[in-house]
Amino acid sequence: MTEPLLEVKNLTKIYGQKKNLLRSGNQVLAVNNVSFTVNKGETFGIVGESGSGKTTIGRMIMQLVNHTNGDILYKGQKYSEFTKESAERFKSKVQIIFQDSGSAFNPRKTIGSQIAYPLLKKIKDRKAVLDEVIKFIEMVGLSKEMAYRYPHELSGGQRQRAGIARALILKPELLVLDEPVSALDVSVKSQIINLLENLQKKYNLTYIFIAHNLDLVAYFCDRIAVMYHGEIKEVGSTKQIYQFPHNPITKKLLSSILTLDGRYKVSN
C-alpha cells in the first residue's frame, strides 16, 4: 500500500565555497544529513521557520539546486545516476508551485504562453497545445480569457491558480508546494487549498507541502517533518506530531499556533 515515491537519504547542502588561497571560506550548512521518504499519494509536510532549510530541500528535489552530499531517489533511481533520457522524463513528473505567484510568472509574457511552454517542447501542434492550455486553465477555475492576460492583470489567487495549471500541464506525479498560500488572503487561501485537495484526488498526486506554520499543515498533510537549523527534528503522522510531540522545537512551534480559542494547547 505505502509505496515510496521519493526517498531522501542523508541529504546535505553546503552553500558557499571552500577556503582556498584566493578565497576566505564562507560556508553555510543549509541542510544537514536529512533523510525521509515520501509515499505515493500522500501529502508530506515540511515545516520550519525561515532559515531552517526547508526551501532548499524543495529546490534540491526539483534539481534547481545541486546537493552536496547524500542521495535523492525517485522511484528507486538515484538522481546522480539519471541518464539524459530519464532526467527528461523525471522533469515532467516532478513539478513545483511557488510561493510568490507575483514573481513566479514572467511579467512580460501572457499567462497562457507561460502555461503552454512546457507542453510546446513535447507537442509541436500549436492548436492542440492551445486546447490543452484552455482545458487546464478552466480546470483550475479560471476563465479562458485569462490565457491572454498578463500576470499583473490577475489577482494573487488567480495567479496561483494559473501556477497550478502550469505545474499540472505535463501531468506530473509529484508536486512540490513551496508555501503556495502564505501570500494569499484568508478566503482565497482556503479556495486554493480546496482546489489542491480536489486535484490530488482526481490525478492521484503526491504533494510535498513546505510551510512555516503548523496550522494549515495540520489540516492538509498526512505526515509532517519538523525542521530546525537544517536538520529534521521530528517526523511522524500529523496526529502523532500534534498529540505527542517529542522535540522541544515541535512543541514550541505547536504552541505558537493561534487558533480561534487562543493558543493551541500542547499536551504534556
Binding site: R59, M62, L64, K91, S92, Q95, I96, F98, Q99, D100, S103, A104, F105, N106, P107, R108, K109, Y117, P118, K121, R166
Partner: peptide
C-alpha cells in the same frame, strides 16, 4: 522566481537568457 520557474518547467539556458530575461 520566474527564472527559477522557467528552469523548473524545462527552459534551456539559452531560452532563459533570450526568451525570459531579454524582454
Amino acid at each position: 522566481e520566474y527564472i527559477e520557474a522557467a528552469s523548473a518547467f524545462g527552459r534551456t539556458k539559452f531560452e532563459i537568457m533570450f526568451k525570459e530575461l531579454l524582454p
